[in-house]
Design a protein around this nucleic acid. Structure first.
Lengths: 384, 384
DNA sequence: AATCAATACTTGACGAAGTTAATTAATACT
DNA sequence: AGTATTAATTAACTTCGTCAAGTATTGATT
């Protein structure tokens, strides 16, 4: 049976999608444990899993490790055949495309970078098309098992319609990127905000896997935050959510471009750090701080503290099960980390301080992987 | 058919519960509009509604107003028979019980107050039992149509088990209030944190009705916040959520009892206001401010600003569709209101400033109504 | 070795809860 | 009166699950 023949098995039943999702996010498991986790009977799992096995999405693992107390038939856990289907993910920045091929478990199989000379829509589309062609027809023979492409763009994006309402770095307004890219590449395209995409990736495949609630904080030019609450991403009724950068933490703090003062972003955003350090680039500021310049070190310390206070606000308000901090700004990880923790620990209220905080710089390809993760998700959960 | 005979009709199908819930929260509607709203076929609505009509929970309204563009059969909207079933709600404070009888639409039908001389568990249970007896057997003949009681308690409460883990004002620890009250009154009892209960009431029956996300901020001794995101209440993975009172808004602000400084609560909590005003009670501080004392007026202004900044943090992070501000502290409504708004408007980022903000003191009985609302909810949505 | 208990999985009959399509009902417009 | 239009109902069917019974594979006990 050719891979393309039974593309619809996943939608064949709600349970099928739920089973595949659980296996993708929580790893190999027996049918019985899936049944418990999903609130189904084991009979339902057996029935729904069969077409997935037939279609090559699942396979049975050898029952190597015993599960129960000793006796009983050993389980033969189901596992996802990661290479059954591949997904493309592309992150668009103002001057570069980063593209990846991921398998069903969001593992990166191939990477590609490509400079953007122009941010005109037609030029970007041409580069996207060239990049997808290069990735799909390069080594690995991905094309025949790849039907979907995820695009991650910073700014105001409507995932449902694939519309980029506004993207400052690309200087785009109201670009129907989803339809355009679908027409250009022949793939099923999902478009998502980059921070949300990264949040999805971490929530499904990273440290937040399986958690009911989760927060991802990105540090860079801006300070952003993706939120998952009650297992679902938070979008904000008026289109605004996760604006941790514009929480005020210091009434006497510096003026922020948003008009207020003391915002986290006005203390810890890259350009504000550069201004406070009195250097011309962030790399210079980092170098001076690493060289031990106490004035510049203090700038990073204050920035880290402010981020920590912002994170504490998230923890106090929504109480996520896990928080991950990352972003290109975290290349200066060592300068930030202790101060982020101290700010967080000081301000986190009661049990909110128990929330595990992972602070780590994610490689740049992770953003593209986030785009692929959204694409995988759209495949497994057609709605939502 | 006696009311007690078909208590199970609501659980007869998921659709039945959904229909009743939609009618309770969104008012009378035709079957067709219910079908659209719930994502069902109109046939399903017809089928599921019939047992509800037979059992007296629903009735058809006369088709007075035309719905469509002109032609077509007029709709006969379904409506809830509010007096089909009644619910008790009791709010427990350190020194008083406030009890109400509500109908299915959470309208208050009867009210009762009762001082608490002792906060010993047995004494409180005795007072609850006496109060429910008084309300049910008083005028209105509520007893035969009432089976449920909601209790609202401040502090750490586990709704599922009816356990009060810790309640500072009552000085309780690990009291199985749900089971005890059920045994004492013979009613089905739900126990919920008071802020969450009030949030539920506003989300289902108040200004947040039908909204996908919603926030309620309470101002008083503490500053609390109940959150609803994606249609579901936020509880916090580590048991902490909505702690708006411990967001830091002023790095140089006063010391808070939580150990940090500049928390909203350390600026706007009742006892901190009293301390800053240099009076011995909050009423005295209010009186001095109303008399025009500029120093005390400034204390209230600063408090209002701090609350506004905290609310802006909520709006920036989760983007609720609507925010309601209330609480016993708002008896000094006039002193707070403009400053809450100015703080909010200054700090709300972009479209977050569009979030409608209702600032109004809710009467004390609303807290008890919140408890009743939780009880109604538990009747309509057996799970969750 | 034979049996038993425990656990995992499979199978088929059944039932709950929805769907679609056709029908009936009630109105406005011509 | 006739027709278009919308609302509600009905009946046949589909889907997706459960349940109960049976099979499979192991460790422990006789």
């Amino acid at each position: 049976m050719s891979p393309a023949d039974d593309y619809s098995v996943l939608a064949s039943s709600p349970a099928a999608a739920a089973i595949l999702t659980a296996l993708v996010t929580s790893g190999p498991q027996s049918r019985v444990s899936l049944a418990r986790k999903l609130g189904l009977s084991s009979a339902a799992v057996t029935k729904s899993a069969r077409p997935l096995i037939d279609a090559g999405y699942l396979s049975e693992l050898d029952a190597t490790e015993r599960t129960g107390p000793g006796a009983g038939r050993p389980a033969s856990p189901l596992t996802v055949r990661a290479d059954r289907e591949f997904f493309l993910g592309v992150k668009l920045t103002g001057d570069e495309l980063i593209g990846v091929v991921c398998d069903l478990t969001a593992k990166i199989r191939a990477v590609s970078h490509r400079p953007l000379r122009s941010s005109a829509v037609v030029d970007v589309l041409a580069e996207i098309t060239a990049m997808t062609g290069e990735l799909l027809d390069g080594p690995g023979n991905y094309r025949e098992r790849t039907r979907r492409l995820g695009l991650a763009v910073s700014g105001d994006v409507d995932r449902a319609s694939g519309l980029v309402r506004y993207s400052p770095f690309l200087r785009w307004r109201n670009v129907l990127l989803g339809k355009l890219a679908a027409a250009a590449t022949g793939l099923v395209v999902t478009v998502e905000n980059d921070v949300k995409a990264l949040t999805t990736a971490e929530h499904w495949f990273g440290e937040g896997a399986g958690a009911d609630s989760f927060a991802l904080v990105t540090v860079g030019q801006g300070i952003g935050c993706g939120l998952v609450v009650n297992g679902r991403p938070v979008s904000g009724s008026h289109g605004v959510a996760g604006e941790i950068g514009h929480i005020s933490v210091d009434a006497a703090g510096p003026q922020c471009h948003c008009g207020s003062r003391g915002c986290v972003e006005a203390i810890a955003g890259t350009s504000y750090i550069v201004a406070a350090a009195g250097t011309s680039t962030i790399d210079e500021a980092v170098a001076q701080a690493r060289a031990g310049d106490p004035r510049v070190t203090a700038v990073f310390a204050r920035a880290g503290e402010a981020i920590g206070l912002g994170i504490a606000a998230v923890a106090n308000l929504v109480g996520p099960a896990h928080i991950v901090v990352s972003g290109e700004g975290l290349s200066a990880y060592d300068l930030f980390e202790p101060h982020i923790r101290s700010g967080f620990e000081r301000q986190a209220f009661g049990a909110a301080a128990d929330c595990p905080l992972s602070i780590r710089p994610l490689p740049f390809e992770e953003w593209a992987r986030g785009a692929a993760a959204v694409s995988i998700q759209s495949r497994l959960v057609p709605l939502a």
